[in-house]
Amino acid sequence: MKFLLIGGKRAHKLVTQYILEEAKLHFDTATFVPLNKVRVVYDGKHTRLMHKNTDLGSYDACYARLFPEDFLFGETMLDILSRENVYTPTNPEAFRIVNHKYYTIKYLAKTGVLTPATSLSIFPKTALRLTEQIGFPAVVKLVSGFGGRGVMLANGPAEFGPLTDTLELFKEAICTQEYIKNPGRDVRAYVFGDVVETVYRYGAEGDWRSNVSRGGRAEEFEAPKEYTEAAVKVARALGLDFCAVDMLESEKGPMVVEVNFTPGILWKFFGDKLAKMLVQFIYKRTLETKTG
């Protein structure tokens, strides 16, 4: 079986190396192609995904490490791979939903998992009306930010106004969310089918956001069942075989705040452990898919 790794514009070299090394132990071939060398070509009959003269639809499995800035191209790419029966742990529809902060929460609201009250509007006055219902302090988010970027905290209307005015100026939709009190950390659950690996993520000194990419840290942690069950429920509802579900420890239980289709594998803290788990899972699923 042939494995393909496509790295988006922000793909980290070491992560690429970990994934490829593990893939070579399981698959017959393991190839890496940077996203900026992939093309979508319509020849009058079919739309194909090409790298030089190779049709990437000929691979058995593909893991595409895509980031929000790869979104426009990534959606088309995943759609073509899916049509060509190349196994990918991310489906195009989920990719679209998860890339939209409000759509994700709206979608999850149907599944019964706990989510923070979240609003969406395009006009600051309307955003304020909705956020007053949610209550301050409130989190203001870019609809498609990532890694903690575009996530801001407003303690009251005076801080809220300039943030939403700026979003309106840049023609961005305004997503606001209930602020959930937390002990300076969140729970990230990596979902590999039914297997869940959980870690605590702590924010950097003085930062209320728990993003490791912004100078925070992570440590392994065996989460209570309710956290792992919530994470699997979320992944299944979205049809994602692999993802990371970020949860806050609220008084009511695990509160799902975000789902990531390309989570960091936190190599600084766990080395190649998560990359290995991911590739082993992709291999197992590809084998199941190909052999029926």
């Binding site: 979508v40 070509v41 319509y42 191209f73």
Partner: peptide, 25 residues
């Protein structure tokens, strides 16, 4: 890109096209 790809896959004739993730491609 998604529109063109969807149209062509649904049997709607479109002009030939190629999508590049960025100009370096």
């Amino acid at each position: 890109p998604f529109l063109l790809s969807s149209l062509s896959e649904c049997g709607v004739r479109t002009p030939l096209f190629e999508v590049l993730p960025d100009a370096s491609a």
